[in-house]
């Protein structure tokens, strides 16, 4: 239901693109257990690592930013990311709440 916030993010993405920035759009495509944000939540990231919006309660954003910068550098168009608490990197990027989420990152170009 929280569409308005996602729409604001898309408008912001358009503004970034207009000022010649490279933009990656990250969208929560699936969740299991007690993940913090609902399916469809969005975040945008530019090549400098600036971001707006969110895909979790702050738990995996850092990692999504790194992946997005790599995506821009690699010239690939998209990638599917998955995070869960049992991940061996749990101390770094895991979801403290015990959920699991899948995030789709794609370049807008």
């Amino acid at each position: 239901m929280r569409n308005l916030l996602n729409e604001k993010i898309l408008e912001e993405a358009n503004t970034w693109i207009k000022s010649k920035e490279k933009v990656v759009l990250a969208t929560v495509i699936q969740t299991w257990g007690s993940s913090p944000l609902q399916t469809g939540s969005k975040m945008i990231i530019n090549e400098k690592g600036n971001f707006s919006g969110s895909v979790s309660g702050g738990c995996v954003e850092t990692s999504v930013i790194k992946e997005s910068i790599n995506l821009i550098k690699s010239k690939k168009n998209f990638k599917k990311l998955e995070f869960e608490v049992s991940n061996e990197n749990a101390w770094n990027i895991g979801l403290a709440c015990g959920g699991k989420i899948q995030i789709f990152i794609e370049q807008i170009n």
């Binding site: 729409e7 898309l10 993405a13 358009n14 693109i17 807008i108 170009n109």
Partner: peptide, 14 residues
């Protein structure tokens, strides 16, 4: 996602 599609989404929502 294509820039044109992003613009179309924004336009339709407006």
């Amino acid at each position: 996602m294509k820039i044109e599609l992003l613009e179309e989404i924004i336009k339709k929502r407006s």
